[in-house]
């Protein structure tokens, strides 16, 4: 007799706080007894529309944070939820950022766009355990001024770590760096033995790795959180297959040297 809990069972949790991050992106703080770890994600369901994998962007006691950009049908509907509404989800799924790998070394976090949602929590955890690392450097690239996420946190982050932002496009309201994140990587000092955690669009990852390699960082020290089409999240529907990996369960976090041959090929 095989007894298994239905992996598709959804549970409901209360939205206790909704924050409008940008015009189309919202953070939801949800009261839950789930025990996710940094790097993992949940499948969030919206009645009649479907599910979407959403990374856990933060955790504070029994509250977990999800940041959702209203881009597809499911995420747009999730974005319409209000405080006190129920949110339906299953999880957590996937593997975690291997923070211990960076103990005693410089931890470099590189995030592009909404990718910051996937790296924010591990950055917060690293800040809490600052002494474990030789240093913490966090580089964040955003398309433009209006799509900057978590602005209310920058001051605090600046006070703890070397946190730098670059905008792809200049803006009169912006006094900081302008240019692609690869430019920011170029001009930033990064240890040869640094450990890198990265999340962003595929092209950003590809070109950032090239810059990091130029600085002597090995691809076995670079970890990337990947995004692929996911339906089941438990390694059976096949949509997220990427070479021999199921991104949903073998990832989303991969050591770059292990995925390099697939990542750098087209249409894998």
């Amino acid at each position: 007799m095989i007894t298994t809990e239905n992996p598709y069972r959804l549970r409901n949790f209360r939205v206790v706080k909704k924050i409008r991050e940008t015009a189309d992106t919202y953070s939801f703080w949800i009261e839950s007894d789930l025990k996710p770890l940094p790097g993992q994600y949940n499948m969030i369901y919206y009645f009649g529309i479907g599910e979407a994998p959403i990374t856990v962007a933060g955790k504070n006691g029994n509250l977990i944070q999800h940041t959702v950009r209203a881009s597809g049908d499911v995420t747009s509907h999730i974005g319409s939820l209000s405080e006190e509404d129920f949110i339906y989800l299953r999880g957590p799924y996937g593997n975690i950022w291997p923070a211990e790998e960076a103990y005693g070394k410089q931890l470099v976090i590189i995030s592009g766009g909404l990718g910051l949602a996937a790296t924010k929590w591990i950055m917060e955890e690293a800040i809490k355990n600052k002494k474990q690392f030789k240093g913490i450097l966090s580089l964040y690239g955003s398309k433009n001024y209006d799509s900057l996420l978590y602005r209310y946190e920058y001051e605090r982050w600046h006070s703890h770590i070397d946190f730098r932002i670059t905008l792809d496009k200049p803006d009169p309201r912006w006094k900081g760096d302008v240019g692609l994140i690869t430019e920011l990587i170029k001009k930033t000092e990064i240890d040869r033995d640094a450990v890198v955690f990265m999340c962003g669009p595929d092209p950003m990852v590809k070109f950032s790795v090239i810059e990091l390699e130029k600085k002597g960082v090995g691809t076995d020290k670079i970890y990337v959180s990947m995004e692929r089409h996911m339906k089941c999240s438990v390694g059976t529907c096949g949509h997220c297959m990427f070479g021999p990996f199921f991104v949903c369960k073998d990832g989303p976090v991969f050591r770059y040297s292990e995925i390099k041959e697939f990542f750098e090929r087209k249409e894998v």
Binding site: I2, T4, E5, N6, P7, V234, G235, T236, K249
Partner: peptide
Amino acid sequence: VFINKNSHPDS
């Protein structure tokens, strides 16, 4: 695929 080598067996 569905049970023996899956950490979330398909019920």
